[in-house]
Simulated scan of single mutants.
Amino acid sequence: MANRRKDALHKCSRTLVNRCGEIYVGNVSSLKLVKTTMAKSVLDAGWGQLKTMLDYKCAHAGIVFKEVDEAYTTQTCSNCGSLPESRPKGIAGLGIREWTCYGCGVTHDRDINAARNILAVGQGCLAVGIPVL
């Protein structure tokens, strides 16, 4: 299983590097998640390995690879940049997969919204919204 996982991660990372000019990833700590109830899922997914593979393959190909702070990326509206009070919060909020921004009325898928925010933070073009901690 470990060899299959590693092979799949190599193929996935190579495809991403070949297809993308820039790759930005959140700074989720897989080592911290291993200490939670999600340990098996985190280890099975090979998040840490994928980031490592992307890092060295991007460096070799001359592609931008950057790990960015992902704090509040699922909760900040990627459309208007607001951090609404009614946003999904905490462990209970993880089950909320879609939410609507009360600032601009846009409905977001939690993961797609986070991906847009991570991209914006990586490119340095997010002027408002995600607070600096």
Rank of each mutant, 00 (worst) to 15 (best):
M1V: 02
A2L: 13
A2D: 12
N3I: 12
R4M: 12
R5Q: 10
R5L: 12
K6I: 11
K6Y: 10
D7W: 09
D7L: 08
A8F: 14
L9T: 03
H10C: 01
K11L: 12
K11D: 10
K11Q: 14
L16C: 09
L16P: 05
R19V: 09
R19S: 15
C20N: 14
C20P: 00
Y24N: 11
Y24E: 11
V25F: 04
N27W: 05
V28A: 14
S29E: 05
S30R: 04
L31E: 11
K32A: 15
L33K: 03
K35R: 15
T36E: 12
T37F: 15
T37Q: 10
M38S: 13
A39F: 06
A39Q: 05
A39Y: 06
A39S: 15
S41E: 11
S41T: 14
V42L: 06
G46C: 05
G46W: 08
G46V: 04
G48C: 00
Q49W: 05
Q49L: 12
Q49I: 11
M53V: 02
L54A: 07
Y56N: 02
K57Q: 09
C58H: 03
C58I: 03
C58E: 05
A59T: 13
A61N: 02
A61P: 01
I63T: 14
V64A: 13
K66P: 00
E67H: 00
V68W: 10
V68D: 11
V68Y: 10
V68C: 07
D69L: 01
D69R: 00
E70G: 09
Y72N: 02
T74D: 10
T74C: 08
T76R: 06
N79D: 14
G81L: 03
G81P: 01
G81Q: 05
R87G: 02
R87L: 02
K89M: 11
G90F: 05
I91N: 06
I91G: 00
A92E: 15
G93T: 08
L94N: 12
L94C: 04
G95S: 13
I96Q: 14
I96F: 02
I96E: 13
R97E: 08
E98Y: 13
Y102I: 14
G103S: 11
C104K: 08
T107H: 03
R110P: 07
D111L: 07
N113G: 04
A114W: 05
N117R: 09
I118L: 14
L119P: 00
A120I: 00
V121F: 02
Q123V: 01
Q123L: 15
G124A: 10
L126T: 02
V128G: 08
G129P: 03
I130T: 09
I130W: 07
V132H: 12
L133C: 01
L133G: 11
L133S: 12
